[in-house]
């Protein structure tokens, strides 16, 4: 398993380089222009000068090479400097956003807390609710609980967040006045009172997001459980006198986790990716909002960096999922 992991990690490097090139070319090919959001009152000559100032007059291979150098060579130095107080990176050009003219990584780090608080918590909450629902619905298939669970989760899943977001704001923020309709990103958690305040303000966005996650994962969990409940090994386990809890919670659940682990692992990078619509509705202004505004403004360095970090996480978590398969099912061999 260790050799497998190491081999996969080394293989990941060329894969990621290739992915970064594909993303770059895709962004390059896409029509659009960083000047598109500027008012029409700015004349074309000035726009052209602004493009030149952004370095857009250079051919794409040069720009790609620059991005690679900045991202893989200079940014790590900045990180080292930041941790150890050294000054390797002094004066080197960093990856700079076209919108803000400031280093992309600084903005990304600034956005992480919001996204982790809201999307991360929603993910954990969603999984914690979904797995018991999935297990119980499968165990008591076609019971009232199963039917109701199916109905609620499917409705929750099929209604888009651009509808549920404003709906819960309308009900809980405007009519009832229980929760704020906007998320305050400057809020700092320092003590118990501010922590409660934080929970209070993230309740609505977490609710909207967790509904989607719960629906999805509980469906997969239920399906996987149903597959395993009728297997012969379950009958064997029961036949040899194992307790029902032991049979279901250990044998069946463990074997059912394989597809669910894939779904969960694949979902983790999307936490980082943020939730574009929900973040926008509640003004959480996390990574998702950063990405969508960057795409709308054609801020290529920002989009490129964000999607690349996203790609790294995807590759990493797919590897983790593969390793977990091996742990959950010792029969799976990779070598």
């Amino acid at each position: 398993m260790l050799t497998f992991t190491i081999r996969r990690l080394t293989l990941a490097v060329p894969t990621l380089l290739f992915i970064s090139l594909v993303i770059f070319l895709l962004l390059e090919l896409a029509p659009g222009d960083p000047m598109a959001q500027m008012p029409l009152t700015i004349p074309p000559e000035v726009r052209e000068q602004m493009r030149v100032a952004l370095g857009l007059d250079q051919p794409w291979p040069v720009r790609f090479w620059k991005w690679c150098v900045q991202f893989f060579w200079i940014e790590p130095q900045v990180l080292i400097d930041h941790i150890f107080g050294t000054s390797f990176s002094a004066g080197d050009p960093r990856v700079v956003s076209w919108q803000t003219r400031s280093p992309v990584m600084d903005t990304v780090i600034q956005r992480m807390p919001q996204t982790l608080w809201v999307v991360g918590v929603a993910y954990v909450v969603g999984i914690l609710i979904a797995i018991p629902i999935g297990i119980y619905s499968a165990y008591r298939q076609y019971s009232i609980f199963d039917q109701a669970g199916t109905f609620v989760t499917m409705v929750g899943y099929s209604v888009p967040p651009f509808f549920t977001g404003p709906l819960v704001i309308m009900i809980f923020a405007v009519q009832m006045g229980w929760f704020p309709s906007l998320y305050d990103t400057t809020h700092k958690v320092v003590d118990w009172a501010s922590f409660k305040e934080q929970l209070h303000q993230m309740f609505l966005p977490v609710m909207v997001l967790a509904t989607q996650i719960t629906a999805q994962i509980s469906r997969f969990m239920r399906a996987a459980m149903l597959d395993n409940l009728h297997q012969d090994y379950v009958r064997t386990a029961r036949a040899k006198g194992l307790g029902e809890t032991m049979v279901v919670m250990v044998h069946v659940v463990r074997n059912s986790m394989i597809p669910v682990v894939t779904v969960i692992a694949l979902g983790v990078p999307s936490i980082f990716g943020g939730a574009i619509i929900t973040e926008q509705v509640f003004k959480v202004n996390g990574i998702g909002q950063l990405l969508i505004t960057a795409i709308q403004a054609n801020d290529l360095p920002m989009v490129q960096t964000l999607t690349f970090i996203f790609a790294v996480l995807i590759v990493l978590f797919n590897l983790i999922a593969d390793v977990l398969y091996g742990l959950l099912d010792p029969r799976i061999r990779y070598d």
Partner: peptide
């Protein structure tokens, strides 16, 4: 397995909106 899963990683990493822009352009 290796190549196909790397292809999957690639598609997972691609940002949807620029992809759509390119496809509709072409």
């Amino acid at each position: 397995d290796g190549p196909l899963m790397r292809l999957t990683d690639l598609f997972l990493a691609l940002p949807l909106l620029p992809l759509i822009l390119v496809a509709s352009l072409m």
